[in-house]
Nucleic acid binder design. Structure first.
Lengths: 138, 138
DNA sequence: CTGTATCCTCTACGATACTG
DNA sequence: CAGTATCGTAGAGGATACAG
């Protein structure tokens, strides 16, 4: 669909992808940092298979609804597996796939970087807020 | 960086942070992959300073309102700079800061990984969708 | 225990119109 | 040109109740 495409843009590997592909990459990456996705995947990647109720405890303040939705998304993208154990009461185990663990491994450096740079963000915000405050004394 | 753990990937640097800090890291990282933040920062990181209207063209389908909001957030977090040129008509240049470029540099490997693994995601979805379709022929 | 269904709120976002 | 202000819509997500 890119009729008069943006031509030879930059050396951005993303720009060589079709809009559809770009959207997919963006979508998958988005799940990494959305409110719960990365957290849930992280728990599963660290501590073997976990049951639904365990996850509900570990991922603090997540609702049942959101946990279910998050797990469905992660499962659909091949990042986690879902295993039902037919017993009473029923039991379901979730585990990270190799692809899921790989994702976590690739996100990790980013977390480390962000934590390392945290003081920069704090001070940047302080400066910005102070400046806007004096301009808009309400 | 720090003599990073010899293969112990279960080391979760996030858990040593206070809730407040965790929230901040999460917030900053979220901005990277939210609908526009990363895209805007990416454009600025690749092609020097850009004016508001240029960004509006490059980041396809973004609205004025969203672009403004995104830029404000990025500016507040110290990822971009905003420079007003007093002339008629007025002109404003946005540019990525070193911190902003650093962020992009750290996100890049993740993009490459995602693009490389794209076939995995596509097939995973196909399998999942096929299986759920046969269960719910609706 | 593991979900699904419903309601409700809050926020993000686009469209549009207006200002310096 | 570079925003701000207002409106309206759509989706995310919590709370709760119910089902297999």
């Amino acid at each position: 669909m890119d009729g008069a495409s943006d031509g030879d843009r930059h050396d951005d590997p993303c720009s060589v992808l079709s809009d559809e592909r770009q959207a997919l990459v963006r979508e998958v990456l988005a799940r990494m940092v959305d409110k719960w996705g990365l957290w849930v995947l992280s728990e599963l990647s660290e501590d073997g298979p976990l049951r639904f109720s365990r996850l509900l405890e570990r991922v603090d303040r997540i609702s049942q609804k959101s946990l279910t939705a998050t797990l469905r998304q992660l499962e659909r993208d091949g990042l986690v597996t879902r295993t039902m154990v037919a017993q009473v009461p029923i039991r379901v185990d979730y585990a990270a796939t190799p692809l899921g663990r790989s994702l976590i491994d690739h996100v990790h450096p980013l977390w480390l970087w962000a934590i390392e740079r945290l003081p920069d963000f704090v001070s940047a915000r302080a400066i910005y807020d102070a400046r806007t405050a004096e301009q808009q004394p309400s």
